[in-house]
C-alpha cells in the first residue's frame, strides 16, 4: 500500500466522522427534549474524537506537516473523502436518525474488521472507536424502531427519511482502487463483504420498525473519491470560516 493510498484511506475514515460530527453539532441546543440533546451531543463528541485520531494519523502518513486542524480546516470540498451519506442535511429528527442508523451499522462493521488491521495504529483507533460506535448503533437503531413503530406521523416521516437517504448508503460498500489496496495490505476492511451483514442488521431493524426496506439499490457515489453533493461546500464554508479568514491566527 503506497503512503498516498494509506493517506487517502485514513482521510475517508477521518472525514466521514468529522463531517457527521459537524452535522450533529448543528443540533446542539435544539433537540426534541433535553435528554436527547445531551445524548446526541455525546455521539457527536465521540465522532469528533475519532476524527481527530484519524486525521492526526493521516497527517503523519502524509508527512507534509499538516496536523488534524490543517486537514480539517484548510482543504476544499473536492479534497474531502467522506461518504455522501454523512454530509446530507439534518432535516427533521427522522432524517438525522435514519442517516445515523445507516451509517452506524456500516461504521461498526468496518471498525470491527479494522480491529484486526495489520496497521497497528489503525487497529488501535478502530478498537477504541468500536466501543463508542456499538453504543451509537444501539441508540440509532432504537430510534428508528421507535419512530417507525410510533405514531402514523412518525412512521411516515421515518419511512420518507429511509427512502430519501437509501441511495447514499450504497457507496459505503463499493470499493475502488484505494479500498482494494487497503484490503490487500490487510489495513482496511473488505467493503463488499460488509454489505450482507449490514443488509441483514438494517433489514431486521426496519422490519421491527414496521418500515419497508427500499427496493431500488441504485447508489449515488463519489464522496469517497472527492465528488460531493452540493451540501458539503456549505458545511465547510461554515466550519472553516475562522481558519480561512485569519490564516495566521492560532486559536
Amino acid at each position: 500500500m503506497t503512503p498516498s493510498d494509506r493517506f487517502d484511506f485514513l482521510l475517508r475514515m477521518g472525514d466521514s466522522t468529522l463531517v457527521l460530527a459537524q452535522r450533529l453539532s448543528e443540533w446542539v441546543g435544539k433537540g426534541p427534549v433535553i435528554e436527547e440533546d445531551i445524548a446526541l451531543t455525546n455521539v457527536g463528541l465521540d465522532l469528533i474524537g475519532q476524527a481527530r485520531m484519524w486525521l492526526s494519523y493521516a497527517g503523519e502518513v502524509e508527512a507534509r506537516g499538516r496536523d488534524e486542524d490543517a486537514l480539517a480546516f484548510r482543504r476544499d470540498a473536492h479534497e474531502f473523502r467522506n461518504a455522501l451519506l454523512v454530509e446530507q442535511p439534518n432535516g427533521d429528527y427522522a432524517e438525522t436518525m435514519a442517516r445515523q442508523f445507516l451509517f452506524d451499522h456500516w461504521h461498526l462493521l468496518a471498525l470491527k474488521a479494522m480491529e484486526r488491521s495489520r496497521d497497528e495504529r489503525v487497529a488501535a483507533i478502530a478498537a477504541k472507536s468500536s466501543k463508542e460506535v456499538a453504543y451509537h448503533v444501539e441508540r440509532s437503531t432504537d430510534w428508528v424502531i421507535r419512530l417507525g413503530d410510533g405514531t402514523d406521523v412518525s412512521h411516515r416521516r421515518m419511512q420518507d427519511a429511509v427512502d430519501g437517504l437509501w441511495m447514499f448508503a450504497g457507496e459505503l460498500f463499493l470499493p475502488d482502487a484505494v479500498d482494494a489496496a487497503a484490503r490487500e495490505a490487510g489495513v482496511g476492511p473488505d467493503l463488499a463483504a460488509l454489505a450482507a451483514p449490514w443488509r441483514s442488521a438494517v433489514g431486521a431493524a426496519l422490519a421491527e420498525a414496521t418500515l419497508t426496506m427500499p427496493g431500488d439499490d441504485w447508489a449515488q457515489r463519489g464522496g469517497r473519491q472527492g465528488r460531493h453533493t452540493e451540501h458539503l461546500g456549505h458545511l465547510l464554508t461554515e466550519m472553516q470560516f475562522l481558519q480561512r479568514a485569519y490564516p495566521d491566527a492560532k486559536w
Binding site: 441546543g29 440533546d37 451531543t41
Partner: peptide, 20 residues
C-alpha cells in the same frame, strides 16, 4: 459549528452539553 479547531469544537460541544 464555526469553532476554529477540532479541540475547541469538542470542548465547546461538551460545555454546551453540560449546560443542557
Amino acid at each position: 459549528t464555526r469553532a476554529p479547531s477540532l479541540k475547541r469544537k469538542a470542548i465547546l460541544m461538551a460545555k454546551i452539553q453540560d449546560e443542557g
